[in-house]
Amino acid sequence: MIRDITLGQYYQADSVIHKLDPRVKLVATLCFIISLFVVDSWVGYVAAAVFLAVMIRLSKVPFRFMVKGMKAIVFILLITVVFNLFLTPGEPLVTVWKFTITEEGLRIAVMMAVRLSFLIVGSSLMTLTTTPNSLTDAMEKLMGPLKYLKVPVHEVAMMMSIALRFIPILLEETDKIMKAQIARGADFESGNLIKKAKAMVPLLVPLFISAFRRANDLAMAMEARCYRGGEHRTKMKPLRYHAADRVAYCVLLLYFAGCVAIRVWL
């Protein structure tokens, strides 16, 4: 169950989307998320869905990988839907005991569900087609100007890329510790929420200790390989825009303009 989170897992494939400059993908994902909140009509959502579907098709990533990422947020999704469904004032549609489902509530609930799932699928698409390293490269580059405000851009980017690299390793480790604890009679499944949370303590303590140990080892390995911060550093894969990236920006602009137009005129 714990291995199902695809966020931060790169899917290797040879596609147009994979080859795009990570900056394009980062900006596109941001624009896509904003566009989801710009549009508020069904036409807009259909446009977003079509855009997303085309991108997924182009990326050659099997759809089930995106759905895998969705599983993790099913709970959040349900809460949003339920709250919106019952707590929005307006025309009553169905009344069951004390709860009333309103027309507006239904509309907002469905919209929120669509928005959230598109949001997750959209950002999964980015992380599935971009190696976290190039993603952080993109962030480092896009936020470059902040350096003049004494923001440690390179350091933050490096930390992020390392954190991303260790997600699968720590997940695996969690799984291992969990199994070891279950084998010795620990119970993670039964009981109420508080009991379950308490059961996590024997899981978290060894996990933290091991994470610190790994961090220590990694820092040493990085130093041994001459790491000394961002200065004097060259890039193996420097970011450069190509023709495809310009086309992608144009497509993105068109899509975004379309979304705004739908909002304004429909």
Partner: peptide
């Protein structure tokens, strides 16, 4: 081996040392 590989892709990891040394791309 897990605690000394920095890159997410094999070639990026191998390039980490030369990058730090300031070797041209």
């Amino acid at each position: 081996p897990d605690n000394q590989i920095i890159g997410q892709v094999v070639e990026e990891d191998v390039g980490f040392g030369p990058e730090n040394m300031g070797v041209p791309t």
